[in-house]
Design a protein around this nucleic acid. Structure first.
Lengths: 218, 218, 218, 218
DNA sequence: TATGAATGAGCGTTCATTCAT
DNA sequence: CATGAATGAACGCTCATTCAT
């Protein structure tokens, strides 16, 4: 599986130092971008919050937009890491799917500010960088595709192959909409309610008769 | 039904002229924002594309952000208008819902650039203006809520009241995701495929047995 | 005595109307200039406060600076008028001088905002207009010169002719400093105290022995 | 003696450099403000005349008004420095006072453009900055108060304590009026004539009999 | 006479980026 | 490697003035 990460050039040679400094940059920038937005945050602020000078900042990036890319990549990375963490072993495909969705929604909830940030600022990425971000998004979506296929294979999920991609995207968007529609959803539903109802909606159609279980009541 | 539109102040008195000029501004700005984004578009560009001078532009708005608000409001307005157009008479609730969804998704498709723009730039709105936009979004969502309740009332839709809001939001987001996920969805689905499958997903659970019909095959 | 008032051109022919409109302009502008200063006041504000449109304003003046001239001229005019009012009859030169000073200081106090305005904004006058204002200032100063000479003539004031001008300017400045140093003087002196002490200072030297009177104690 | 100077923030850290650059700014701005006035001078002109770019200018100030404050402060500072220079030792209070006045008037004459500038533009200072300027003006006035009190103490000056402040302000204003009334005074008096006559006027009343000396004749 | 919409030169200020030290 | 002073293009916005109606 090829995942060609975009290689942001740096004036500095030592890769360990690069790693360390960029983590500082990302940590500082995430905070700033969440509170002020990408455009209203200045490079000086990023440098200062990172703990070094503006000159040093530019030793590790080539442009302000690189910082945005680094940030988006980091958030994406964390989402993926956390999602994969909770995957491993589960027995049947459908069980795995439900657990994955629950976990994913929980991650979305816990990382809501970051996820929202990513959602809103991705468009400010330079056209060169954007494809890498979309690729990553597809990759994460791919996780759900795989689970769906696993369920199809083991007979616990009834779904036409042509619909696998769509269903995976639906799951992704339903997770993300918990962040970008929180202004409305939070007023009426808790995360748990939201999660179970969406699962019910998604699985109703595709759960094989045998695997159907009563929906939890809240 | 009170829908308090935000009143953007103008130096010009004649309301007809204001209407006319603001339409020019919106038309010009939508195009520019779609292609360059809000932040990368300058007020001078907006003025020029509107067909008058920068001074005249500022006779009809107070700040660049006002233009964004005007744009978002116009897009929202058109979405709502077009959606309501296709509503009126339909017989049963479920029929009405299906038609509304189909029409809504079609509008989203036709207005995809504008809708995407609205989605991405809403966050650049001044905090004062934002609530009016969210209110409008809720209002449009409310259209689907009403249809759902109508179906519940006439027995063609089986859905708990507590889920009405969620379902309406799901419909909205599914329409909008056709624009903001087009980079992925377009590769695998036509609008028609996308529409019918999402309808199937949404209705499967709530369609009363009696009203169930075979899903169209593409 | 020639006092060539600057003739501000107007597009309007009727002199009565000009007079009327310009009075409106001056009244509005004085208020605005006092509170916001000349530079921070816009022509639109002047027009609005005058009770007519910006177009009409420009029918009666040629530039914003004309308004300033009109204002300064009006203030100067009122100062002179009020000063001359209290002059007429008095018996001896020295008595007349004292009364004139008292009255002048009182006028300065009552018109302090206007006088201060005039003091601070005169420099914003176009070079063409300035001489007319300075001429007027000299004219008012001339009133005190005349009184001084009257006192010299009737023997109640002992003063060399070469010092007449200086003394007159001193009186003028002492009156005006009550406005432009009010931030300091008001903390320590009432207008009455200030007046009597300055009179004492001024007259001590020049009052003939015979006309000397004990200074009022406060 | 606390004289809390207003601390204008700077983006640059090195205080020596700040000092140096601000001196450049003040030198350039004084010249420009004298010839064009504060409002008609642009920040770009200030930057250019200072010898650096507009960006650099804003590294050392926060707003154009800061430049005005820096200018006024510098002029005030020089006036005070020059005045204090000529003070030190003199024998009697009255002698000291006369020397101080002569020196002060000379400084006013030599710095007439700057002093006039300060007089005319002080009102353009932001309300935050103004008090610092007035404080400074009072401080300089205080120099004369001290000399007056010294003369009272050593018996060479006869003056009620209640009049000390007024007399000090009179001296200040008489010095300053040489600049802002130069259009009239210069026509009739040389600086020396002006100085001696004003000294005569001021001292006539308060010089003790013993210390009276014949006024110089010009 | 009176109106007020239109104009656009010009302003103060910002901030991503560079580069000499 | 790190620093931070210097740069200047670019921006949003203002407002005195004009002129067609």
């Amino acid at each position: 599986m090829d995942r060609p990460k975009l290689k942001i050039p740096s004036m500095v040679k030592d890769p360990v130092l690069i790693e360390k400094r960029r983590r500082q940059i990302v940590d500082a920038a995430v905070e700033l971008f969440i509170h002020k937005g990408f455009h209203r945050t200045t490079t000086r602020e990023i440098a200062k919050a990172s703990g070094f000078s503006i000159g040093t900042l530019y030793e590790y990036i080539e442009s302000k937009e690189d910082v945005l890319y680094l940030v988006v990549e980091a958030i994406h990375g964390e989402v993926e890491r956390r999602l994969r963490e909770a995957l491993c072993d589960s027995k049947s495909g459908i069980e795995m799917l439900k657990e994955a969705i629950r976990h994913f929604f929980k991650v979305m909830d816990e990382m809501q500010d970051s996820v929202l940030l990513m959602y809103q600022e991705t468009k400010s990425l330079p056209p060169t960088h954007l494809p890498y971000v979309l690729r990553k998004e597809e990759e994460i979506t791919g996780i759900f595709e795989e689970i769906l296929r696993r369920g199809i294979a083991d007979g616990t999920i009834r779904l036409d192959e042509s619909q696998v991609k769509l269903m995976a995207h639906n799951i992704m968007v339903m997770g993300e909409m918990w962040t970008f529609r929180r202004w409305a959803l939070r007023k009426h539903y808790t995360l748990e309610q939201y999660t179970e109802r969406q699962i019910a909606l998604l699985l109703n159609e595709m759960a094989s008769e045998s695997s159907k279980e009563p929906i939890r009541k809240e």
